[in-house]
């Protein structure tokens, strides 16, 4: 669990998870290309290093396809953390709050 929190305690790595959430199964090259397109400067080396930390924490799962390595957001460890601190009966109310916050902020999701 320490590895998960350490991996999440970095804005660049959270950005990478957001990118995979938007489009799962990207290669290192695709991730770099799309980051550059939206003006986020992260060297290929840095992205590669961040991905390794995310994979070590099991937040990213990889699949080899031919010579390519595809990266997938793996939400299971985050789910386990939620299960640890969020009770069964709080869930509905929390979801209502999250929905309300989303509606009020009109998040662009």
């Amino acid at each position: 669990m320490d590895a998960v929190f350490k991996a999440l305690a970095d804005a660049s790595r959270r950005e990478l998870l957001d990118r995979l959430r938007a489009e799962n199964g990207q290669t290192l090259g695709e991730l770099c290309e799309r980051l550059a397109k939206t003006g986020i400067g992260m060297s290929r080396q840095a992205v590669s290093k961040h991905l390794a930390i995310l994979e070590e924490a099991n937040l990213v799962a990889t699949v080899k396809r031919g010579r390519e390595k595809l990266h997938y957001l793996n939400p299971v460890p985050i789910h386990e953390i939620a299960e640890r601190w969020i009770g069964k009966f709080e869930r509905g109310r929390l979801q209502a709050l999250v929905d309300m916050k989303k509606a009020l902020e009109q998040s662009d999701e």
Partner: peptide
């Protein structure tokens, strides 16, 4: 082989 849609990993 098409690209998998979801990949989940857990250690038990």
């Amino acid at each position: 082989m098409s690209k998998p849609t979801f990949v989940y990993v857990t250690y038990i």
